[in-house]
Every structure is written in C-alpha cells, then in structure tokens.
C-alpha cells in the first residue's frame, strides 16, 4: 500500500489527481465545487501557443497576399479607396494581435484564448461570479508590465550587466515567476482583476467495480477484522483495479493477504484481480455502511469504525 508520506497528497487531491490544488467555490446551491488550478507549466504552454499564433498569423496573411494575383490592382495610384481600406484592415489586424487578442478571446463564452483551449484552461472569477469585461481587460493590460516589460528588461540585462540592470532584472524575474509562489498559480493581473485560471478536464464515467452478487457466488467473504483499511487505501485500490497492471495487482494482493492473514481456499483459489475486486467490494460496502451513520475512517492509521 501507499507509504505514509503520500497520504495527505491523495486524500486532499481534487478529482483524485495527486499533487494538484483546487480553488473551492461555493455555488448558490450550497455545494462546494473544486476548480482545479492550472499549473505553471500549463499556463506557460498556453502562452507559448498563443504567441506562436500571434507570430504566425501575420506571416500567413502576408503569404496569402503574395499568392493572390493582386499586383496590378494598385498600379499607378488606381483604387486608392480600396488601398486605404486594406491598410485600415491590416492595421486593425496588427492592433488586435498586439493588444486585443487575449481580451477578445477571454471575453467570449469559452473565456479562453486558443492556446488555453488546447491546454483545457479557462479564466474564471475568483469567487465563481460573472467574469466581467473590466476584469478581462485589467488582467490582460497587466501583461504589459509583468510580461512584455520584464522580457525587454531581461534582454537589456543580457546586453549590459550594470547595477541598475541587475535590479531591473531581478524585479522582472520576480514578476514573471510570481505564479510559482502562490497556491493558485495566479499572476499579478489575476490578483488585480480577481480572476483565476483553472483546468477543466473532461472526466468520463467508468463502470462500478463492485459486484457483490458475483463475489457471493464465488464464496469470497471477509470478516470485519479483515477490513482493516480506510478511505485513502480504498482510493488507491480503486486506481490499481482500474489500471489493471498484473504486476502491480500481484504485489498489492500479496501485501493485503499478508496484513489480513488471508488463507486461500484449497480448491480453486481466486486470481489476484478477482481477490482484489472482492476485497474492494467488501471494504467499500463496510466503509459506506459506516459512512451513512456518520462514521468515517480516513486511512488505515485512523481508529477502526
């Protein structure tokens, strides 16, 4: 079974994902919903994807412009009105890429830029309320001071190592890495706008592992003393049974059998998976029955219920 050090990680993990934190939001229905915080890596990944799009989009447009047979349209000052129209569209397009890209996409219904969508991220209001246009504007305007300026300053520092540039470099680095130093991985713009970036996985509903009827027919049963584990171990056992790796199941079955002094029946002993599923079913039935009475056992170190 899991080592003691792992215990808190698994039990506190939202959605059973170990090592991730969540922003808990109380819905108007009175249910606490855990929104998984995006990791720093996911956020950087989304940003790099967005930057790639922002750089490639003008290149693609220029290539299309060159491919189209347009060279004679503007010859000798013809079509001036069309020319200035094209110029306006081009300038608005560049302006959109530089200043409006993040704002427009995050104001949409998906509340995410294309890069964020790929990484399954989304911007939410920190209290679960409506994401206002003002908040989206603020969080993205602040990119100016926590992203573009630091990057410029770091380039300046690499060219010239004077005392002032060292100071600017350190400050820039601190702003850039701020998401690493808080639990929700929020950057300065998120704090100012009261927004958070969360990860929205698409979980699928798997089958239920418990088959008490089948276990009864096989004749596998356990005494209450033998059900000597808590909810944490049940979660780990569920994970083992869903992954179905024979070597892992064999090792886990051996550990459990040793702990509960299990004696295999002489005739037709159950396989590792059959045994583990039966044990999982019995343990879950036991823990859930006690749970209905308000008695829960967090893990095997807790007092038996």
């Amino acid at each position: 079974m899991a080592k003691a050090g792992k215990r808190d990680l698994a039990s506190d993990a939202p959605y059973g994902e170990i090592g991730r934190t969540a922003t808990e939001i109380l819905t108007p229905e009175g249910v606490v919903l855990p929104f998984i915080n995006a990791t720093f890596g996911e956020r950087v990944g989304a940003l790099l994807l967005d930057w790639l799009i922002m750089i490639l989009a003008p290149v693609v447009v220029v290539i299309i412009w060159l491919i189209l047979p347009l060279e004679h349209v503007f010859d000798g000052g013809k079509n001036k009105a069309l020319g200035s129209f094209v110029l306006i569209v081009a300038m608005l397009f560049l302006f959109f890429l530089r200043s409006g890209y993040f704002i427009i996409f995050e104001m949409g219904a998906r509340a995410a830029t294309p890069g964020k969508r790929v990484m399954k991220l989304r911007v939410i209001s920190h209290d679960g309320g409506r994401l206002t246009p003002a908040a989206v504007f603020t969080r993205n305007a602040l990119r100016e001071v926590e992203l573009y300026l630091p990057v410029t300053l770091i380039f300046a520092w690499s060219a010239n190592h004077s005392a002032g540039s060292w100071l600017a470099f350190l400050w820039a680095l601190a702003l850039l890495l701020l998401p690493l130093f808080n639990k929700q991985h929020a950057r300065l713009g998120d704090f100012l706008a009261g927004t958070r970036v969360v990860h929205m996985p698409k979980a699928s509903l798997s089958y239920d592992l418990v088959d008490l009827e089948g276990d009864r027919n096989l004749g596998l049963s356990f005494t209450p003393d033998q059900l000597a584990y808590g909810e944490m171990e049940l979660t780990v056992l569920e994970q083992v049974l869903r992954e179905r790796k024979p070597a892992v199941m064999k090792a886990v079955a051996a550990r459990i059998k040793a702990r509960i002094n299990w004696v295999d029946p002489k005739i037709d002993p159950p396989g590792d998976e059959t045994f583990l599923r039966a044990y999982y079913g019995a343990l879950r039935a036991h823990l859930e029955a006690k749970m209905l009475l308000g008695r829960r056992r967090k893990d095997k170190h807790d007092a038996p219920v």
Binding site: A203, S206, D208, L234, R242, L287
Partner: peptide
C-alpha cells in the same frame, strides 16, 4: 459513496 471515479466525474 466512496466510488472515486464517480465523484470525480
């Protein structure tokens, strides 16, 4: 329920 998969879902 203690079915982690269901609660996660």
């Amino acid at each position: 329920s203690l079915d982690r998969n269901m609660i996660t879902y």
